[in-house]
């Protein structure tokens, strides 16, 4: 089936199999591999993209369901090579280790901030609870989001303590 999708402002037209997921479509048919697959069952959030203004697990959406949709993926987050404030904060705060959950995590944060531009720590925690990160333990991710939204308290900046 032929579908037309706008991804990061660019139009793509592809013939897809009915069983193809949006995740598979983005990675295999369009060639945008920034979006990762971690479980194929909507549990881990690695494949999060923004579809018509809402974060979705792209492994649970069929490509044909995205016909006519407007999508944002991690590849659209950087403008002319310049990191977005969220990306920049992730980089500065070591909110990235293996990096495999990072694209999905950043998409989830983008979605959270679109709805709630100044989330509290608790709101950030609940905002990202659908995204697994096995490396960081989440703390530096939360600090990055608070910093990106200008809310990181001095007490949060303490970091490592030498005793």
């Amino acid at each position: 089936m032929k579908i037309t999708v706008t991804i990061n402002g660019q139009k793509y037209q592809r013939d897809v199999q009915e069983s193809q997921t949006l995740l598979g479509f983005l990675r295999a048919d369009v060639g945008l591999t920034g979006t990762k697959g971690g479980c194929g069952a909507g549990e881990c959030g690695a494949c999060t993209v923004i579809m018509n203004g809402e974060a979705v697990n792209s492994c649970l959406v069929l490509a044909v369901e995205a016909d006519g949709a407007t999508l944002q993926t991690i590849e659209g987050e950087t403008v002319k090579g310049k990191l977005s404030p969220v990306q920049d904060a992730f980089a500065r705060h070591h909110a990235v280790q293996c990096g495999f959950c990072t694209p999905g995590m950043i998409m989830t944060v983008k979605d959270l901030l679109a709805r709630n531009p100044k989330p509290s720590r608790d709101e950030v925690i609940h905002g990202i609870e659908g995204n697994f990160c096995r490396c960081t333990g989440y703390q530096q991710i939360i600090e990055a989001v608070l910093d990106a939204t200008g809310q990181l308290k001095e007490s949060d900046k303490e970091g490592l303590k030498y005793v």
Binding site: T33, E75, L83, D88, A91, V96, G99
Partner: peptide, 20 residues
């Protein structure tokens, strides 16, 4: 900062799962 941060926050870092 981490030496690999840019590649990872932009989704550009190539993993074997991305390779064809």
């Amino acid at each position: 900062g981490r030496v690999d941060a840019y590649e990872k926050v932009t989704g550009h870092a190539p993993y074997v799962s991305d390779m064809i």
